[in-house]
Structure formats: C-alpha cells, structure tokens
C-alpha cells in the first residue's frame, strides 16, 4: 500500500518535472522572437537595441514601413515585388517539379537513371557558385532592368526544379501503377492519365510544392541580393537584410527591421506550421525509400 502510494507520488512529480522542463524550454526558445516582436513596437529613436523591454511603445514602425520611401527604404514596394515574384515562381516551379517527378516516376526511358544521378550530383555543388555567371547572363540579356526582374528571378528559382524533384517523385512512386494501366486500357492518353487520374490523387504533394516554392523568394537574401541592384525592385528579404547590414544601420533601422520581420515572418510561420505534417511525412517517407 505504502509502496504504491510512493510510486504514484514520484510519478506525479516526474510528470510535473517533465512539463515544467518542456515549457521552460519553449519559453527559452521564444525569447529572441518575443524580443523581436517587442522591438517592433519600440519607439525610435529612444532606447537602444540592448534593452529587452521597450521604454516607450509605438505603432509608428509599422506605419513608417509602408509610408517611408527613401533611397534605402521602400518596404511597401518590396512587399509587392516579392508577392509578384513568389506567385510567378510558384506557378513555374510547381509545373516543372510535377512534370519532372511524374515522368521520372512513371516512364522507363533510356536516360532516366543517368538523369537522376546527374541531378543528385548537381545538387551537391554549392548553389551560389552560379551567382556571378547568372548575374552577367541575366544583365546582358536585359533581364535585370525594372519590371524584367519579375521574370528573371522566377526563371532562376524554377530552374532548380530540374534537380529538386525527389520528394514529389517519391510521392508519385506511392500511387499504384495499376490505376494508370486501367485508364490506359480504357483508351486514355498518357496526358489524360496524368491530368485526370494522377493529379487529383496528388493533392498533398501539390500543396506542399506550391507552398514551399511560394515561400522561397521571401527568404532568399543571397541570390536576390546579389543580382538585384535597383532598390525599387528589392524583395523583402534583400531590403530588410540590407538595412541592418552595418552596425551603424542596426541602431537606426532595427525597429523597422523588426516590424518588417513581423510582417514577413508571421504569414510564413503560419504557412510552415500548416506545412509541417507534409514535411515530416515527406522527409522520412522519401528517405526510407532511398
């Protein structure tokens, strides 16, 4: 009797300890993010980056973000730029990824294996080795001028689809082949099989591809930062990264960087949290199959 009570007592304390530990961990994990959120409401220029709690609160950072247009700031414009680029990228990438993945999953043509090996090998080269050459190529054909940026970036982003199809292919591999066969016996063409049978069954991977390719341009500060030289055509990532790149500008712009980050980070974080179940399934599912 006594023994039993003892175990249940230690069990309860173990449970509380676990819970406390996990929630403390969550709190620690959120500290930088909460700090960022607080900074976005700190009145500028009072106080400095080094304090956790703002002295004076204001909504001014968010208003300034969308009203101020200077040689280094034009957030509203950047936001629109990114939106347009993300939508075009998302359409192109999704089309490319789905077609390549489907072909490699279903057709046994001669160059299939070599192509997949080449894709693996190409994927191992550091991506930004191509930046300099791409910059010169794109600017020489005039694609880095004004509104042509809206085409230049999606083209480059979506060209990665040729090597980034493995997850979608893994998904198509799981759709039983006899579905296609049955439709083909009924006289459907290969194109028809793809559009009317495979695609409707592939909603999860389509959603996943759409969302991940849509998110890409919002996070890319490297390539976009290197090729875009006109402030008016910056994406949010390039613009926000550029305004706090030097120690001096951190003091001046950090509150606005924080506000911009909240505006960019909130939707992307929500999308990611929505995506995580596909992500978990996809990463491990693809990995097991090799």
């Amino acid at each position: 009797m006594i023994k039993k009570r003892k175990t249940s007592f230690s069990k309860v304390s173990l449970f509380t300890f676990k819970n406390i530990f996990l929630y403390v961990m969550c709190a620690i994990w959120l500290v930088p993010i909460i700090w960022l959120l607080l900074q976005s409401f700190r009145e500028f220029p009072t106080g400095n980056v080094a304090e956790f709690w703002p002295q004076n609160w204001t909504f001014q950072n968010y208003i300034l973000l969308f009203t101020e247009q200077s040689a280094v700031m034009n957030f509203g414009r950047w936001f629109l730029n990114t939106l347009v680029i993300a939508i075009i990228t998302c359409v192109m990438t999704t089309l490319f990824v789905l077609s390549i993945a489907y072909v490699l999953s279903r057709y046994k043509f001669k160059l299939r294996k070599p192509y997949m090996n080449i894709a693996l090998i190409l994927g191992m080269f550091p991506g930004f080795l191509t930046m300099i050459a791409l910059f010169v190529m794109l600017s020489n054909v005039g694609l880095l001028n004004g509104f042509w940026h809206y085409l230049a970036l999606p083209i480059v982003y979506s060209s990665g689809a040729g090597i980034g199809f493995f997850m979608a292919k893994g998904f198509f591999d799981t759709i039983p082949n006899n579905l296609d066969e049955a439709a083909r016996i009924d006289g459907a063409s290969n194109a028809r099989v793809f559009f009317t049978i495979i695609l409707p069954l592939s909603k999860p991977i389509i959603i996943f591809t759409i969302l991940t390719s849509f998110l890409g341009p919002w996070a890319d500060f490297m390539f976009a930062g290197y090729v875009i030289r006109e402030v008016d055509f910056f994406t949010v990532a390039v613009g926000l990264y550029n305004i706090i790149i030097t120690p001096a500008s951190i003091d001046q712009f950090f509150t606005r960087f924080a506000a911009g980050s909240v505006i960019v980070g909130l939707p992307t974080a929500l999308l990611f949290i929505f995506l995580q179940r596909f992500y978990v399934g996809g990463v491990t599912g693809g990995a097991v199959k090799g």
């Binding site: 959120l30 930088p32 993010i33 990264y241 980050s261 980070g265 974080a269 990611f272």
Partner: peptide, 16 residues
C-alpha cells in the same frame, strides 16, 4: 512553440 524558430525565414531569425 518550438517550431516557430525554424518557421520564420533564417535571415530574420539568425540576424535577430
């Protein structure tokens, strides 16, 4: 709560 740190683009979280 834990996943938020990887849900936000890295140029934001890491610069922060």
């Amino acid at each position: 709560l834990l996943v938020i740190s990887i849900a936000i683009p890295q140029f934001i979280t890491l610069m922060v």
